[in-house]
């Protein structure tokens, strides 16, 4: 029953940056509650901008965005009660962890949202410790954020969002900067979060991640428009489409002394 509830509805939205650079053009889509939804596309196609719009950080120049049957607009975000409710249930992990983390140490970073929510101290400590344990960053809790590596920062950024226990989790390139083991852990966490009823929205150009999550997929092209929306399994099989949006490429190499060209992608569909 719950799966049919619409979480986001985007109606013909367009966004142009002040220096005249088009980021999104005529985007219309629906995202269901308690689903895994992924936006894929080549670099610069507008994925991050779309995430900012879904998180109510910027607002489209044209079109409208409906979230839980309410229109998201600048006026709406002047309502303090709405902002509190929205921000405590809808969280974004930024592509660049450096910009997301602003506290001096990892513990402060993970407890930041919880202190704002005025949770009881015991609960804050519990949530921080449990989340740190989940992401294998317990030994980093007292470390300075600036002293972390790229992968550690990414884990801290994800943990800082998970401690909040949001209903909607937006992740902009969640596996970038992570080693394969950590990538596997993130996939497992995301799948389990989906199992317990969270809505997961990710952007990526990592087709391996898509293959693991099997989300509803929105493919964006380099003209900043939606190329297609459909099931991950079907889209991943459509090599022509993936070539068109620059997610796979033709690649030449030598076999037994003769050169030949074939389609190449950096993932392999796992079949049982």
């Amino acid at each position: 029953m719950r799966k049919d509830i619409i979480l986001y509805e985007l109606k013909n939205i367009s966004y142009t940056y002040p220096n005249n650079i088009i980021a999104l053009e005529d985007i219309s889509l629906q995202i269901k509650k308690n689903s895994v939804f992924a936006i894929i596309g080549a670099n610069g196609c507008g994925k991050s901008t779309l995430m900012y719009i879904l998180n109510g950080l910027i607002f489209p120049n044209k079109g409208e965005i409906i979230y839980n049957n309410e229109k998201l607009s600048e006026e709406k975000f002047r309502d303090k009660e709405f902002v509190k409710k929205f921000r405590s249930t809808n969280a974004l992990v930024f592509q660049d962890s450096d910009v997301q983390l602003f506290c001096s140490d990892v513990f402060s970073e993970l407890s930041f949202s919880l202190i704002q929510l005025k949770l009881f101290e015991k609960e804050i400590i519990e949530r921080v410790n449990q989340t740190a344990e989940l992401l294998n960053i317990t030994d980093l809790l007292n470390r300075s954020v600036s002293a972390l590596s790229g992968g550690e920062k990414k884990k801290v950024a994800i943990a800082s969002v998970l401690t909040l226990n949001p209903d909607v989790i937006l992740l902009d390139e969640p596996t970038s900067d992570l080693d394969p083991k950590a990538q596997g852990l993130i996939v497992e966490i995301l799948l389990e979060l989906h199992n317990i009823g969270k809505s997961i929205i990710i952007t990526t150009h990592d087709l391996g991640l898509i293959d693991d999550l099997k989300p509803q997929l929105c493919v964006m092209n380099e003209q900043h428009k939606i190329e297609t929306i459909g099931k991950a399994e079907e889209i991943l099989e459509n090599e022509e489409l993936l070539m068109k949006v620059n997610l796979i490429h033709k690649h030449s190499h030598i076999h037994d002394g003769s050169t030949h060209k074939h389609i190449h992608s950096h993932y392999k569909i796992h079949k049982h």
């Binding site: 409710k85 405590s88 249930t89 929510l117 005025k118 949770l119 009881f120 609960e123 519990e126 949530r127 449990q130 989340t131 344990e133 989940l134 998970l162 909040l164 226990n165 949001p166 209903d167 852990l185 497992e188 966490i189 799948l191 389990e192 979060l193 199992n195 317990i196």
Partner: peptide, 18 residues
């Protein structure tokens, strides 16, 4: 798949917020 922290299983409707 992986054991998530207990608090993530609870509803985040605001009941725990002071």
């Amino acid at each position: 798949l992986v054991k998530l922290p207990e608090f993530l299983y609870s509803d985040n409707s605001g009941s725990t917020v002071s």
